[in-house]
Design a protein around this nucleic acid. Structure first.
Lengths: 159, 159
DNA sequence: TAGTTTGGTTTCTTAAAGCAACCATATTAA
DNA sequence: TTAATATGGTTGCTTTAAGAAACCAAACTA
């Protein structure tokens, strides 16, 4: 690939993608959210090559998205658990899932629905909102610092 | 790369990543949200190789995230504009940005802040919520269909 | 004591990313 | 009128990552 790195980008999206923006990392995190903790389980559930899984797990640990924990008496078993930083990717994963469900509906039919464990009620669709909870589209927002008043998204006549 | 494809995966996150899960696609979408529409502008702002940009734009058009529009009398100028599907990635991008700002703060200092164009008020942090707007963590939710009651995320004692 | 589980590493092949040069059309500037 | 420049690519080459499969060592299990 000869990938470009974005460590030093002053765009936080680019920096975020640097950590979880490759094909597998976010799926590993998702799988961890499903409860998977063991190397072999990640490998089987995702169908990922072992060397790539190794690399991704190590990088996610380096970036403190996962934590490697020795379990068992003699340290022969490891677990990979989400850190707070990792669990904090929940909104990202759910936003992506909802986008996928909306625009590329599952061939299987019903999308996965998540519910509040306490009340049994379904989660609500994610949206960017103002402090009153009103949804905002990309056209409703602007960046105060931006010199171009037109940013971030100019309206189009026919679109 | 010899990348694995997820077109037929019945996981909508995997299918979503299939469309916008590579290094560049989401940055192209982000740039489009900033108002960029022209090939050369994408190229300069992102510092992406031209052939890769070509490929990504074509794929985003194929996937109906972008729309290619001929502008100018003689069709010598094109613009790439977000479709509704593309604009609908706004929550994904913002969730990712907020995660990046929280966990990998900009070396430059202040994170980019977005405000409601109408009221000037800042957008709120994104969260997965119940119908009353209460934030839910990954530990607060479950999947009704899942045979394993423990899914999606088992609590850990020391985590 | 032989087999299995676990968590890897190594080697090799394939394919994608990045760079730079090239190219055709259209506009602008001299 | 001609030359330069902007635009939107394409082509060829090199580097590097992804994927598959084999190998491996420690520990547990039958």
């Amino acid at each position: 690939m000869a990938r470009k790195r974005f460590d030093d980008s002053n765009c936080s999206v680019a920096r975020a993608l640097n950590e979880v923006g490759d094909w597998w990392s976010l799926l590993v995190v998702l799988q961890a959210m499903y409860g998977t903790r063991r190397f072999v389980d990640f490998q089987q559930e995702l169908g990922i090559a072992r060397n790539i899984l190794c690399d991704r797990l190590a990088r996610l640990v380096d970036n403190e998205v996962l934590r490697k924990v020795e379990v068992g008496e003699h340290g022969s078993r490891q677990e990979y658990r989400l850190t707070e930083k990792g669990r904090d990717l929940f909104p990202v994963v759910i936003a992506l899932r909802q986008w996928g469900d909306k625009w590329n509906p599952s061939p299987e039919g019903a999308p996965l629905n998540l519910r509040d464990r306490a009340t049994g009620r379904p989660i609500t669709p994610m949206a960017v909102t103002d402090p009153d909870g009103n949804a905002l589209t990309v056209r409703d927002v602007f960046m105060p610092e931006a010199s171009e008043a037109v940013l971030p998204y100019p309206d189009e006549k026919s679109g």
